[in-house]
Structures are given as structure tokens and as C-alpha cells.
């Protein structure tokens, strides 16, 4: 199945900001995060189709996954 992955802020360093990838049914957010060489513990905000999700959630065909690193300064 195909999903779209959108990366924000520092996750874009040396990576495409948006890419469509082919994954197996049952793929979890955490699996995709590892595919992009992002340590799962470095992800702060996860959205699938604009809804808040977790690393353990399973993706479906056509999903748009958005990943944000922690931004905490003031």
C-alpha cells in the first residue's frame, strides 16, 4: 500500500520534506519512522490525516503521516 510521509522542521535535514512510500499492510508509525532513520524517541507530534496518533498506530492505504520533532524553546 502507498502512504505519504510529511516531515517538519529538523526532520527535513537531509531528507525529503514529503515522500510517497510503499509499505506492507499492518505497518505502524514506528516502522515508518525507523525507515527514515529517525529515532522514535525523537518524535514529539504524530498526525495521520490531521488527527493526533501514536507510534503504535497502524497505517492504512492513502494515509498522510506528519511527523514533528520537539520544539520547546521560548
Amino acid at each position: 500500500m502507498k502512504i505519504t510521509v510529511r516531515l517538519f522542521a529538523t526532520f527535513r535535514e537531509n531528507r525529503e520534506k514529503e515522500s510517497t512510500i510503499e509499505t506492507a499492510p499492518g505497518t505502524k508509525v514506528e516502522d515508518v519512522v525507523r525507515t527514515f532513520n529517525i529515532p522514535p524517541e525523537d518524535v514529539a507530534i504524530i498526525m495521520i490525516n490531521g488527527r493526533g496518533k501514536t507510534l503504535k498506530d497502524v497505517l492504512s492505504e492513502g494515509d498522510v503521516l506528519a511527523l514533528f520533532p520537539p520544539v520547546g524553546g521560548g
Binding site: 488527527r51 493526533g52 520537539p70 520544539v71 524553546g73
Partner: peptide, 30 residues
């Protein structure tokens, strides 16, 4: 903020942004 990056949201009671934006385990960011 962090370096070149920033985020802003306006959150009222009951808005969906509340659980979404604050469900992290980190204390500091990029």
C-alpha cells in the same frame, strides 16, 4: 521555537489541539 523553526496554536477549552500538542515525553526540544 528552536533555531530556524517555530510553532504557534490558539487553544480554547475542549479543542483537539490540547491532547495532540502536549502528548510528548520530552522536556526540551531541538
Amino acid at each position: 521555537i528552536a533555531g530556524w523553526y517555530g510553532q504557534v496554536a490558539t487553544i480554547h477549552s475542549g479543542d483537539v489541539t490540547y491532547p495532540l500538542l502536549f502528548d510528548y515525553h520530552q522536556r526540551r526540544g531541538e
